[in-house]
Design a protein around this nucleic acid. Sequence first.
DNA 1: TAAGTTTGCGCAACCGATTGCCCCGATATT
DNA 2: AATATCGGGGCAATCGGTTGCGCAAACTTA
Lengths: 340, 340
Amino acid sequence: MVPTVTLQTIADIVGVSRSTVSRVLSDQQNHHRISARTAKSITLTAKELNYIKNEGARSLRVKKTSTIGVIVRDITNPFYAQLVKHIDNALYQEGYTVIISSTGYDLAKERGHISFLLSRKVDGIILSPIQKSYENVLLVKEHDLPLVLFDCKIDEIESDYVVVSNEASSANGVNHLTSLGHRKIAYIGGDQDDSNNRLRFAGYKKALTHAAIPISEKYVRHGSYTFRHGFSAAKELMHLEDTPTAIFVANNRIVLGTYKGILDSSKRIPGDVSIVGFDDFETAAMLASPLTVIRQPLEEMAAIAVDLLLTKIKSGNRPPYVVNKLDTELIFRGSTGPVN
Amino acid sequence: MVPTVTLQTIADIVGVSRSTVSRVLSDQQNHHRISARTAKSITLTAKELNYIKNEGARSLRVKKTSTIGVIVRDITNPFYAQLVKHIDNALYQEGYTVIISSTGYDLAKERGHISFLLSRKVDGIILSPIQKSYENVLLVKEHDLPLVLFDCKIDEIESDYVVVSNEASSANGVNHLTSLGHRKIAYIGGDQDDSNNRLRFAGYKKALTHAAIPISEKYVRHGSYTFRHGFSAAKELMHLEDTPTAIFVANNRIVLGTYKGILDSSKRIPGDVSIVGFDDFETAAMLASPLTVIRQPLEEMAAIAVDLLLTKIKSGNRPPYVVNKLDTELIFRGSTGPVN
DNA sequence: TAAGTTTGCGCAACCGATTGCCCCGATATT
DNA sequence: AATATCGGGGCAATCGGTTGCGCAAACTTA
């Protein structure tokens, strides 16, 4: 067992007090005059002993941890993985360390992770909350911790937000389909409690209405953001007597299932049915029918989230709150074509 | 600003001492007799004030943090994302919280993250190290911190390991190709410093030798675990005068590039060239030519890594060290076919 | 040479929680 | 009535660093 090296260890060896060691190792010699010899001797023994400052102890005293918590719904979703990577990079630049956690759409785990972050006294949280319930978000607010929510918009909660223009983006995607002549357009979406899903669905409806197409319930499949849901919904749609000629899909996980479900029903993409998906991802372009998708500006979202959070931290978590709504990009690929 | 609620705050309100509050809130009333009335009153006010224990302070005192650091090379790689998810789940069950970080194959960041974990006094680390240099790993060992390395094997470092049978697995994959009649089989791999790459390459060579096929340098492309490398290597191979009829690819990122590079060269899969890739992933089965791949047992790897680590923690980080080598599974799909 | 400055560093309180030990009052025992 | 015993809880040290304040010695300055 390696004995723990603390300030005192070094102080004893060098023959000075803890204070002096602390000052040297915190590089605060500017304010406190310490002889070059003492300083050198301290840094040297610190190196020699592999001294590492106990940040826990330090945080306790200075009441800040220089760490930020980032909680996403599902780290295995490349959308979040990418986002987290960019957030991590940006925060790293600013001298913060990031604690990443993933809830897997489980409220209890979300609560657990938030409690953890609170109990570790992180300086701020960037959170993509599960929207089945927002009590966990309130927990953060109750503790007056700087908070940025992203990839969601909870009307009941005042906070900083980073989102994309979900409604307009979807409308844009669906307009693309109607302009190709499609009139039987289905919607496969996620959780009904999810604000993204609601807004994307709203955009879908708006575009249909704009094209004077009635909304038909039989073409609408809310569910969950999973491959499974996309798969089964697609198969259901393909077995309708009056099958849709196009499908708008609200998320990257669902769209893979949808894709598979369609092929499984012996339909062709885009020959029999066109697809537009929300979210771009690496393999979207490499499928047999490369997917036409709505791409979210991941890096920008991350940068803005970080920026908002740091501003809040520096301001002592004071209002105003800002909702940042970013534009998306429609990437045309091979999964959409004119209606037969 | 919400004033911080501490044990003292509660103690003052209830009219007892910090000690008593601590004992009640730590559920240690077994050892210390505290009247039911006092206890109830304490828990009540704690709830009311939204008290959250300062884990930093607690850790300082009890000298353990109940948190584990997990460092992977690239969280955007679904292989690691999945692994991390499983590790997180397993550790969560055991009452640990996990700090995830991703190095992006950057040694400086790896060092930064390790330093962070050391300074936060995590109870243990699960690490998938960058193998360009292993000084960072030594850093952990110097501090005598329980450590499990995974997805790598560094001969110079004694430690617990979780790996797959890289050599045998590759040989198996390549055998599949030779048994289909292929004799011109290329290898597209990752970093030469990487133990996985070396072993996978060794397996490749072993299988060729076994089939009495000479190793040809022109068919071997080491590089990096990136899409880009896979793409350019594939294009180079496809422009050889004597193009290979099959390619064995050492990782999931590379294989996507390889796939794209082949199609870009107007070759067909598996008509002109067969592919076997290391690592399975969600979309592998959904490409125009579903990929034949070697699947690693992610969940099992995670479980074993966690198990090894917890054992080390409980034993006070004492030897012996164990190297756990797991078997893989060859998943046959459409990207491999008989040679023409 | 006395007074004023500067240099170099230590003292001790503090951050929030834990815990070994002690103590007081009340009831039980003899 | 004197001694044990036990229920209920406080004291104070401790974990490792940080920091306002103070102080002695060395050096200037007049």
